[in-house]
């Protein structure tokens, strides 16, 4: 049977086209210069191969114009390529505001994907076509790298840091997902599939109709965790419990025991779960046990989603809050 020999990757995302255009331009440029140099070498080699008669050649046969020419021309060309590449990069690294949120956690040797609406998958990611998808990445152990060749996107998942990438699938189909940063013995087996589907099929899949169990949203899973882990014993809905009530806490300012105040954004919520003694709310004892090592990355995200859901509709969503906070930070008020 004729072996399968693809020579060019599929173009399955909005960014694949522009990236490939730059690729073809560079191939043309490289072909031109390589053939120019190789052609000159071959031509000179044949034309001036060693013969009895010695050709006249001026002593210091150097031409300044030539030198300037082949310094300035390559520089100008490279600036063009730089600018083109830079514009592409800025688009690649700026997710559109309305993109679908997905969390991908790299853990030695599998990808754990989690949609906001709760569907969780391992080494598989269902995405709708025609809508930008922003994948927020992190890793639980070593550096991995989320790479989908058909979408021309790649981003490292670094432990201790949220990085993100975005793409907008254009063609339904199953595309390779690779781990591109060496991460141990089964690095080569840490692969998976990104399944692009028509939006209707995606919604059907998302609501889990064909796989029976209706998915549980992150906030819902967070609520269950909140009770299972015993948080509810201290954090009552009113302030009567030993811990502060968490209603309407997400996104608002929290008075701390040392007098300063901080806005309860997701990083503060995460820190209070994992290192409660770090900054204790005013008027409460630092008695909360640390949940470090008791909850996984994804569970912390669910808890945050649940606390977030305790806000009544009126107050500002978390996104704007931290926006305000960063302006405050830029005025140098934040430490």
């Amino acid at each position: 049977m004729i072996p399968e020999l693809p020579l060019f990757p599929e173009q399955a995302s909005t960014m694949a086209g522009p990236v490939d255009q730059l690729y073809f331009f560079l191939i043309a440029l490289s072909a031109f210069f390589s053939l120019l140099v190789a052609g000159l070498i071959i031509a000179f080699s044949i034309r001036y191969r060693r013969r009895r008669v010695r050709l006249e050649r001026p002593e210091d046969f150097g031409m300044l114009q030539l030198e300037i020419g082949w310094t300035v021309l390559p520089f100008v060309l490279s600036m063009v390529i730089f600018y083109w590449g830079a514009m592409l990069f800025i688009d690649l690294r700026r997710p559109p505001a309305d993109s679908l949120e997905v969390f991908a956690v790299g853990k030695r040797w599998m990808w754990k994907m989690q949609h906001l609406e709760g569907r969780r998958e391992i080494n598989e990611l269902h995405v709708p076509i025609g809508q930008p998808v922003k994948v927020t990445l992190t890793s639980e152990d070593v550096i991995h790298s989320f790479f989908v060749p058909a979408f021309r996107v790649k981003q490292d998942a670094v432990p201790g840091r949220y990085t993100d990438l975005w793409f907008e699938a254009t063609k339904p189909g199953r595309y390779h997902l690779f781990c591109a940063e060496f991460c141990g013995s089964q690095h080569a087996r840490m692969i998976g599939q990104v399944i692009a589907m028509e939006p209707a099929d995606f919604q059907a899949w998302l609501s889990g109709t064909e796989r029976g169990a209706a998915p549980v949203s992150m906030a819902e899973a967070g609520k269950r965790l909140f009770t299972d882990l015993g948080c509810v014993t201290c954090h009552q809905t009113d302030d009567s419990g030993r811990g502060p009530s968490l209603v309407n806490v997400a996104g608002s300012a929290v008075e701390l025991s040392d007098g300063s105040s901080v806005v309860a954004d997701s990083a503060y919520l995460r820190e209070s779960i994992l290192r409660p003694q770090q900054r204790v709310t005013a008027g409460y004892q630092p008695i909360m046990p640390t949940y470090q090592g008791l909850v996984g990355e994804d569970q912390v995200l669910e808890l945050i989603a649940y606390i977030e859901s305790l806000r009544d509709r009126g107050s500002t969503p978390l996104g704007e809050v931290t926006q305000r906070k960063t302006e405050a930070a830029t005025e140098g008020t934040a430490g």
């Binding site: 949203s217 990083a267 649940y306 977030e308 859901s309 978390l318 931290t322």
Partner: peptide, 12 residues
């Protein structure tokens, strides 16, 4: 569906 807990764009 709960609003996305958009990871804060730029914590200090």
């Amino acid at each position: 569906p709960a609003p996305p807990p958009a990871a804060a764009p730029d914590t200090a």
